[in-house]
Design a protein around this nucleic acid. Sequence first.
DNA 1: TAAAAAAGTTAGCTATGACTAACAAATTAA
DNA 2: TTAATTTGTTAGTCATAGCTAACTTTTTTA
Lengths: 230, 230
Amino acid sequence: MTNKLNLNNLTKSEEDYLKALFQLLIEDNSTKVGNNQLADYLKVSPASTNNMIKKLKAKKYVVSEKYGKLELTEDGQSIAVRLIRKHRLWETFLYNYLNFSWDEVHEVAEQLEHIKSQKLINELDRFMECPTTDPHGEIIPNANGEYSIVPKITLSSLKEGDVCQLISVNDGSVQFLKYVSEIGLALSSEIKIMEIRDFDKSIKIKFNEAEETVTRKFADNVFVKIIPEL
Amino acid sequence: MTNKLNLNNLTKSEEDYLKALFQLLIEDNSTKVGNNQLADYLKVSPASTNNMIKKLKAKKYVVSEKYGKLELTEDGQSIAVRLIRKHRLWETFLYNYLNFSWDEVHEVAEQLEHIKSQKLINELDRFMECPTTDPHGEIIPNANGEYSIVPKITLSSLKEGDVCQLISVNDGSVQFLKYVSEIGLALSSEIKIMEIRDFDKSIKIKFNEAEETVTRKFADNVFVKIIPEL
DNA sequence: TAAAAAAGTTAGCTATGACTAACAAATTAA
DNA sequence: TTAATTTGTTAGTCATAGCTAACTTTTTTA
């Protein structure tokens, strides 16, 4: 009996905190996630975070020592993965069936992911014929909460001369997504690092025969797969 | 400028109260809706209702004198109709595309109707090719909030010998909906009133060549259209 | 290694929206 | 028409979840 977990006893806020922790801890693969970092990520005060972490520790979804780093229990992770599954399935639905654009899906999916109905999400999955990635290129966990966490390589971590393929983009900001579309980048685009300028770490990239210079901040939000040179 | 109304400033609770008021006032066409009646309908205490009514009066969605009957302003009605539109469109989606049954759709639609996105609901409408009635037979208001409020005639208001057609059913209770399905009634079923028993107001009805005796309470939740006799 | 900065914690406040208990007004019935 | 019942209101409490301000612990750096 792995699944005695009751997913219906969580408030929207509790869910938001668990999902945020998962994204910082597991998806971003951080060594240490602290209280203030989480507060920053969720755009709330450190006091609020501290408060919520206490509650989540009492419910055994989070473990941490006083003044120590935050960690998710298995149950905590399980809840977070289910939320991510819901979020990404809804994004896919909005994008593929309801004419939403790349940058519009996130905000609405943030609301839809909190709808409590196991049947709803499983049927939505079936209706869409079990998609494996969302519109931003992120992998959708399956109904058992299993999914391969591909270590994320950012465009900013590459060196001059590297060639890579765009895998996914951070969907946290509408402005960013609009910019990505505008310069003509799309999922699977092949990108070559032409030059990295030392003084501001801005990067000159080449794709589809076009060249663009992007900032370090931009490159931090673009996830890629390196294409080994022949 | 009819629509200066900001639909995004309302809490889930405020929306629930406005919708409940609309259903009691307009759809059930009551002469007087009072505080306790509303509390009853929403299954909260009269104190809670009183409190919320104060807030909705301050926001100009509700008008009432002290100790007087509750009424919705035009803005209040407008918000309620939009919620009903959302509720019924989601019910239709769940029923037609996601294999939900008659009695399963209501609970999930109660959650989905609070999702804030104009685009979402308009695209969902387009995707389903603008359905006009939901799975329970209720009319879906259009994007402008217009819809014909058909005066509801309950099965219980008919007299012996009358013949009618099932138009819609009250979707408030899962048990009721299951019972309706089990005895074989469906939307559009033709029903004849065979006998009304005086002592308990139970009604013997005939449909699809079958006969059933139903209680007054049952008949109160079934809405019909009288078929004029030839 | 001591001072400064950053990170984490606590206390106490706010708003929302439930609740109960007590009370007041209005309606119904004797 | 007075008494009983129903209906409506108010006061005060609770939980959730946010906040600021003050404080403590840890980490950094000078």
